[in-house]
């Protein structure tokens, strides 16, 4: 099932629009991982809450209720994030609150969470969340490698001072391709990644067809 989510039915690949705000801040592997985990957490919590309240939600006012729940959850996550990961929260800025109105999240809330029981929703959002973390971290790693020639830089912002200056340096740590670090580079990187994943998937399908 995880494999299916990662490669064939990755929500990230299907709902690219929902990714744009997340991709914008994934300049490095660590930042990609952080924003991915935040989104995953927000996804799991909102999905389960909406699902738990689904018998209590009149059809006509489902949208205000969904929005209320998602904004509250994300605000709580944002406050906690500011309290414990202040520097990253300053760096991400508006992109964390924006998760509350992420099109990917809202679409899943309305189409899925309102119709399924909590267990199904929980399992689905965990796999879906892993898919998001996977693709965004990968994009972050790709961009960091090309733009700065390093990996895992600033890991201390997420994992504490114990891992400070443990970054892997390539290309002598010199200047890389700065385009990749800019917003357009984010979309180019994502496009290349999706293409790579599609090639993989297609060759997999071909192999199976031959068998």
């Amino acid at each position: 099932m995880i494999r299916a989510r990662l490669l064939q039915n990755n929500p990230v690949l299907l709902h690219i629009a929902g990714l744009c705000p997340l991709i914008a801040v994934s300049v490095t592997l660590i930042k990609g991982l952080a924003i991915g985990l935040l989104t995953m957490l927000a996804l799991i919590l909102t999905m389960c809450t909406v699902s738990a309240f689904r018998h209590f939600t009149p059809l006509r006012v489902r949208l205000p209720i969904i929005l209320l729940i998602s904004t509250t959850t994300v605000t709580i996550i944002y406050l906690l994030f500011q309290a414990f990961f202040y520097e990253l929260s300053v760096d991400f800025g508006i992109y964390i609150p924006l998760i509350a109105v992420n099109s990917l999240l809202l679409a899943r809330l309305e189409e899925f969470a309102l119709r399924q029981n909590v267990t199904t929703v929980l399992l689905d959002s965990i796999t879906c969340g892993i898919g998001i973390v996977f693709i965004i971290t990968l994009t972050g790693a790709f961009r960091e490698l090309l733009a700065y020639g390093s990996l895992f830089s600033q890991a201390d912002l997420l994992f504490g001072p114990a891992v400070q200056d443990r970054a892997l340096e390539f290309l002598g740590g010199g200047k890389g391709l700065s385009l990749v670090a800019m917003a357009p580079g984010a979309f180019i990187s994502l496009g290349l990644l999706i293409a790579a994943l599609n090639v993989r998937r297609d060759s997999g399908l071909e192999n199976r067809a031959r068998d």
Binding site: P58, R60, L68, I76
Partner: peptide
């Protein structure tokens, strides 16, 4: 229609209030 909205709003407000209480000092400190 109204009761669910009101109840959920109240729960949300309460949760936000508690979180804010718990984090505001730390955030200011940061």
């Amino acid at each position: 229609v109204l009761a669910p909205i009101l109840i959920i709003s109240a729960i949300c407000a309460l949760l936000l209030g508690i979180t804010n209480q718990f984090t505001s000092e730390r955030i200011e400190d940061n």
